[in-house]
Write a protein that binds this DNA or RNA. Structure first.
Lengths: 251, 251
DNA sequence: GCTGGGAGAGGCTTA
DNA sequence: TAAGCCTTTCCCAGC
């Protein structure tokens, strides 16, 4: 495709708010929250109908450069090639693709009224766990969310058979140090607000060795979550509290 | 494009390890770490030469479904339409796109020998800061960068003019609760292991009010990082320690 | 608009 | 391979 033709096709597509697919030899520069640069290469550039823009290489899932929806898109043709730019304010960012050659450029009016439904998310699992907290520990009772003390982002707030507050953080994948810190932050905040030490239980499929050791040192607990995803819902097969260490039994 | 033709084009492209762009009316199902489903709609499907696969709607930057590189890709044509599937083991995952119609399908042999260079990353900033730790606080001496510990890897480990250990965590954007927790985790481990209270300084452009109050309550510090990104490198304009609260002066 | 937090996060680096 | 962690994270839900 000759560059002037390509420019016209691109301008028309953007004007018509269509989704545009361009394949060509280009260099890319970005400047904004960070800055980046890549020399010439054959790449796939996508401009969607919401004016989001993507630059893909021929490998990896992630785009190497991008610009979010609602940017201002302009094109310009000069001796260096065909420039396609997307800019926005707040933050000020500019993505510039300069095509030396365009092999393909076509617009599509993609009609799509449906949206993705996902099952087996963390929220999904937390909801299921709420229905049957005994699986985590017999006698555990979910508390009403209405308590104004409780930070909204705690997955499950409960009370154990001895009347202690219990904070449960649910994770859909292997928990690491980050998740332990997160639980600890919640436990500290609630303990302080209610002026009473709360328990914290991390419920996840697995936990890394270091995270487990840090967690135990903090007096927090881990319970292994066994779940399966299916369509259209997830199912919890079981929850197995970690065996108490010998020392804890003696204490 | 008729479906049998499309199937041939797709099979050929995959065999030739080219990058394939397909536009069509399709439904998508995914089952693996989670599960998802979306009914018919016109979408853009990309299969790259490394066999990574992407399903894009006409809006938002993120793909709604995807499969990482090196999956096994198969096609099948029957009464329901043209199925394109990508599956992999570890973890076992299947992505299935069923096209009712294919508007466009073409393969491209994208030649690209270059890779992206990014400036203004956190690593970049930490490197610059290491060169001139005095900017954070006069008399600060760097001991180690990216030093691994049980509780995680510390960006910069240093010693202040009074011989105290200082842990510095650098962030390229506004710091929140997560970042405070991260720093706290490092400080606690080092303090405990060396049996001597370490200082912790969070260096970031900004910090959220709540995070700042939590940080101060933990006895940690914040320093505002003023940097600018450029091509081909970032530059630190300055670092301004937060004014000590009145109480700290008195103490 | 800011803040917090999940995501099928992806992707990189180091042990 | 596993673990940790950054990312122009994106994206969404609350406030």
């Amino acid at each position: 495709v000759e560059l002037p033709e390509a420019k016209q096709a691109i301008d028309r597509a953007i004007d018509a708010q269509q989704t545009l697919v361009i394949v060509g030899d280009c260099s890319v520069k970005y400047h904004g929250r960070a800055a980046s640069k890549i020399a010439d290469g054959e790449r796939l550039v996508i401009i969607k109908s919401d004016r989001s823009m993507l630059v893909h290489q021929n490998k990896n899932m992630a785009a190497i450069n991008y610009q979010p929806p609602r940017g201002e898109i302009t094109t310009a043709l000069d001796g260096h090639g065909l420039a396609v730019r997307s800019s926005r304010d707040k933050p000020r960012e500019l993505l510039e693709v300069i095509f030396k050659k365009v092999f393909f450029a076509q617009a599509f009016a993609l009609r799509d009224d449906n949206s993705l439904r996902v099952f087996g998310t963390e929220k999904n699992l937390a909801d299921l766990l709420m229905q049957d907290l005994d699986k985590v520990e017999p006698g555990l009772a979910a508390l009403k969310q209405e308590s104004p003390h409780i930070s909204g982002s705690i997955d499950i707030f409960a009370r154990d058979s001895k009347g202690r507050n219990v904070i449960i953080e649910v994770k859909r994948r292997t928990a690491g140090l980050k998740e332990v810190s997160q639980l600890k932050r919640y436990v500290e905040e609630v303990s302080q607000r209610l002026d009473r030490k709360a328990r914290g239980i991390l419920v996840a499929p697995k936990i890394t060795p270091h995270a487990l050791s840090v967690l135990e040192k903090q007096g927090l607990e881990f319970a292994a979550l066994d779940f399966e995803v299916s369509n259209p819902s997830a199912k919890i097969r079981g929850v197995k509290p970690k065996q108490k260490a010998l020392g804890e039994f003696l204490a």
